[in-house]
Computed example of a mutant assay.
Amino acid sequence: MPRFGIAEAAGVGLDGRERPSEDVVVVLPSAVIVLDGASTLRTDLPSGGDYARELGAQLAGRLTAAPELDLAQQLAGAIRSVARHNGFTPGESPSSTVSIVRWDSDTVEALVLCDSPVAVFTGDAVEVVADDRLRSLPLGKYRGRLARGLGYGPGHVEALRESGERMARLRNVEGGFWVAEAVPAAAHQAVRASWPAAEVQSVLMATDGVSCGVDDYGVFSWESMLSMAASAGPQAVLDAVREAEKSDPDGVRWPRVKPHDDQALVYVDFAAQAGLGS
């Protein structure tokens, strides 16, 4: 079994208040699941974190019971089960990103649905499995407000509400973005990749509260993030991202939904399993 390093930290809600993390990490003997429940201003539905925990449990059961089945089929089945159990319908359901890495003696495979990327390191190369469809959409004016120095006040919440309405119209439709919600077919829109197991040395799985350190803040490259996770531990990576955010408390330099997002990072060291690591 490979060696694991895991770190998690709660951010704040859309109202700026502290609350439990909505990120979920599930480690199985031959797979890791990372989910990021979507924050929402709606109070008539369970939280994204509640949804992510239930979906993670469904996925864990399916991956354990039938490890040979296709990952997208298993994810579709898990989405369907959660929706039926709770009476969720498209547009009237919490949602979550999903990333899965699964391995056996021959193959390492990854599935990414929405913005929780996976970085796979093989020799001197890194391949990032990322679903950038959400990032590419113009979902509202809140970023412009923040860039003008207007901060995280009531006006920001109203701008987020407008953004959420636009997002709802683009969720799980062609030309929009795909996420785990109440549409099982979304699972088949996931970004996927696989590698011969002998070539994979290590893997990083991150929610966007950590990958922003690469994609937005420029604190890390994926290679330097791996180096820190391997030498100082994943928590050091989370701390570095938080320090960057503290230097921009009003979101002027890096306009973002919240001052601090939830964070989850999983470091999987396959080289240690092969006796090549420390």
Results as ranks from 00 to 15, higher is better:
A125F: 07
Y51I: 09
Y152S: 06
L134Q: 12
F88D: 00
S136F: 03
V183Y: 00
L63F: 03
E243R: 11
R102A: 14
S227Y: 13
A190D: 12
L134C: 07
A57P: 00
P2F: 08
Y267A: 13
V129E: 05
R19D: 00
L170R: 14
H188G: 09
W195N: 08
F121D: 02
G149L: 09
T43V: 12
E54D: 02
P117C: 14
G275K: 14
S30G: 04
E92W: 04
R84S: 13
S224N: 06
E8A: 07
T43N: 12
Q58C: 10
Q235V: 08
L160H: 03
Q263W: 01
G176C: 09
S211L: 10
V25Q: 08
V203I: 15
G149M: 09
L63Q: 00
P29L: 06
G56L: 07
A72V: 05
M1N: 07
A264L: 03
V268L: 15
G144A: 14
R145G: 04
D132L: 12
S211P: 02
K141M: 15
S30Q: 08
C212W: 01
V219K: 05
M1V: 07
S105V: 07
D23F: 04
V12W: 01
G91P: 02
R242Y: 06
V24P: 08
T43P: 00
A232K: 12
V191S: 05
R148Q: 13
L45H: 02
P90C: 05
L71A: 08
A197I: 03
P46T: 12
F4V: 13
M228P: 00
V191K: 13
G49I: 10
L134N: 01
S96F: 00
P29K: 11
A52H: 09
V219W: 00
P154N: 11
Q189L: 10
F220S: 07
A197S: 15
L41D: 08
